[in-house]
Design a protein around this nucleic acid. Structure first.
Length: 324
RNA sequence: GCCGAGAUAGCUCAGUCGGUAGAGCAACGGACUGAAAAUCCGUGUGUCCACAGUUCGAUUCUGUGUCUCGGCA
């Protein structure tokens, strides 16, 4: 899967170059990204839907200040766990930051595991008009009370195309499609054209992963370390601060299971086992999503430390060719 | 040692009034237009513990053995 192929682009028309590193959780992105950032005078834009949350450090494997080694990181710690942050929010926040970084003569380096976020930035998001957050929220809450069959028949009337495409049990997508159709007066499926939010940068996307079994081992180990480092305390203090299980930020692997423990629905061991299990399942979903980027710059880490060095060097060469 | 219960998919178990079997979880694969660490979909051959008996046919009934878990000693 690894490739030495030269991806340096001619960059005609002066389109600015941006580098992105994706990979499943626990693949080792953080450490290598900081080393690469040091080498290329880059600033990192986190592409991680959980590290955006303040007060959630241990369970999101957020890099500490020491780990960052002076490399500037963006889009970490930007909201509290009671707010949500959509992929469109990510695209519209990241675009101006990329511009700023380029303005400083530095390399914008997007790093993270939220493929959907990167997708929105690179391929654009749909231009759905603002309908008012409260209206949307109220309608959504109303719809969530309805039976699935009812939702399906509603969507069939409003937008048969979406109804045909959305899987029958996928209530989240049914509710979304109905609310957009209803509030905009246009079928949801009519918004499928994507709009590029930024200035259409020239992206180099690099992937970092591990063989499945090794990845699962790393995940299991990382979860144990999180518990040792006080994940339960972190969750307890979030609960004490009023962030309950319904807060968007708390719908996070590692947090939801610990909440179950504090509510007496699970033992500590069960909670930890569930965190491991859910993280493994999540990593698999991430890998499926990454396939849509159709990149051939994938690197497989293994247990051999000397290969880490080779991977670093190959990535560095790719980046060098891309940004020159 | 005796009495009872059990042995079926990687795990927990259901089932077959005798015609070689199926759920949940795991695993694997997939989808993804503002919740994405979210949400949802698809994929089930496994000496049905072993041996013998009955039977056209046994994973199913009978016997013996082995192992596991209870209880009593």
């Amino acid at each position: 899967m690894n490739s030495d192929k030269n991806h340096g682009k001619e960059n005609a028309g002066g389109i600015p170059n941006v580098v992105a590193l994706i990979g499943p959780t626990a693949s080792g992105k953080t450490a290598i990204s900081i080393e690469l950032a040091k080498l290329f005078n880059a600033e990192i834009i986190s592409c991680d839907s959980r590290q955006i949350y303040k007060l959630m450090d241990i369970g999101t494997a957020k890099p500490s200040t020491e780990e960052m080694q002076g490399i500037r990181h963006h889009l970490i710690d930007i909201i509290y766990p009671d707010s949500s942050f959509s992929y469109a929010d990510f695209a519209s926040c990241a675009a101006p930051i990329i511009k700023e970084i380029l303005g400083r003569g530095k390399v914008p380096f997007i790093v993270g595991g939220t493929g959907f976020y990167l997708d929105g930035l690179v391929n654009g998001v749909s231009a759905i008009p603002e309908v008012g957050e409260n209206k949307l929220k109220n309608l959504r809450e109303e719809l969530e009370l309805l039976e699935t069959a009812k939702l399906v028949s509603m969507l069939n009337k409003l937008d048969p195309e979406s109804a045909a495409r959305i899987k029958f049990n996928d209530r989240q997508r049914l509710v979304r499609a109905i609310s957009v159709s209803e509030l905009t007066g246009r079928p949801f499926s009519s918004f499928k054209d994507k709009k590029i939010i930024n200035n259409n940068y020239n992206y180099l996307i690099i992937g970092l992963t591990k063989a499945r079994e090794l990845l699962y081992n790393s995940i299991n180990l990382r979860v144990e370390v999180m518990f040792k480092n006080g994940l339960l305390n972190e969750v307890e203090s979030l609960l004490n601060s009023g962030y309950g299980e319904l807060a968007p930020g708390m719908k996070t692997i590692g947090y939801q299971e610990c909440v179950e423990f504090f509510y007496g629905r699970k033992t500590k061991d069960e909670a930890m086992a569930m965190v491991k299990q859910n993280t493994r399942n999540y990593a698999k979903r991430q890998e499926t999503y990454f396939k849509r980027f159709k990149i051939d710059n994938w690197f497989n880490k293994d247990e051999n430390k000397s290969n880490d060095k080779k991977i670093f060097e190959r990535m560095a060469r790719l980046i060098e060719n891309h940004i020159k």
